[in-house]
């Protein structure tokens, strides 16, 4: 019980809270990079994606320690319930409630990702959008109740997190994803990839999709084609690649 009244738990709460904010800023920014399909030449896209996944786990661990030490610490009377259910804390009712909201949203995002293979993609994406709201709520939580966010290095750190996260959000909202365009037998003018490529080559802007001539109503009423037209280029493509080897 002595340990619970010592100031170290409270220091741990402050430190892990600040670090959790930094980590979550990194996670949402990396998530924006994944969604914008950044990478391909110097850094692999899958590497950014993997970093996004693993960093999110580290951030959740820090958040767990932050909450656990807050609950255990006897300096403020914040129970486990107050960490999950908003507006049930007697200590700094609204700022702690913001933290609870952020935690609930992050838990929703995390759990939906854990069962991603069993969830429809549209549902998972909808839930994943809430990570932006969770991050913004956590930022406000840090500004309103963070002891270290009052000035000095802590304030600079929180300000940097806000700027980076907001920048990533703006880019995500306004940016256009680049495509990792490859080269096929049907695109002889496309640049050839390097012989031993580790990544898919530099990302290029997506070239305009060639116009597909849709038949008019009169043409469509003619005799049906003997073979499905989509099958022809695919087969020709494979033949060409096999011959080239």
């Amino acid at each position: 019980m002595i340990a619970l009244t010592s100031p170290y738990l409270w220091y741990t709460t402050r430190a892990t809270g600040l670090m959790a904010l930094v980590l979550f800023t990194g996670v949402v920014s990396l998530g924006a990079l994944v969604a914008l399909r950044v990478g391909g030449s110097s850094v692999g896209r899958f590497e950014i994606s993997e970093l996004h996944r693993s960093l999110s786990i580290v951030a959740m661990v820090f958040l767990g320690i932050h909450i656990l030490t807050t609950v255990l610490d006897s300096f403020v009377s914040t129970g486990l319930l107050a960490a999950v259910i908003p507006l049930t804390s007697s200590y700094r009712r609204v700022p702690v409630a913001l933290g609870a909201v952020a935690l609930d949203l992050m838990l929703a995002v995390w759990l939906s990702s854990l069962v991603k293979t069993h969830v429809a993609n549209a549902t998972w994406r909808l839930i994943h959008w809430f990570s932006w709201l969770a991050w913004a709520t956590a930022l406000v939580h840090a500004v309103t109740t963070g002891t270290d966010a009052r000035g000095g290095v802590g304030l600079v750190l929180v300000g940097l997190c806000g700027a980076i996260g907001a920048g990533a959000g703006l880019w995500r909202a306004l940016g256009r994803p680049t495509r990792a365009a490859g080269r096929t037998a049907l695109s002889p003018l496309a640049p050839a990839p390097p012989a031993n490529r580790r990544h898919a080559g530099p990302a290029r802007e997506m070239p305009a999709r060639p116009r597909v001539e849709t038949p008019t109503r009169a043409e469509r009423s003619g005799p049906p084609p003997t073979e499905a037209p989509a099958a022809i280029p695919r087969r020709a493509q494979d033949e060409t690649r096999r011959r080239r080897r």
Binding site: R45, A181, R183, T184, S187, A190
Partner: peptide
């Protein structure tokens, strides 16, 4: 295509 370059190729649209 990055993780399995021998099994997957990308078309012009990625």
């Amino acid at each position: 295509a990055e993780l399995a370059p021998d099994l997957v190729h990308l078309d012009e649209w990625g």
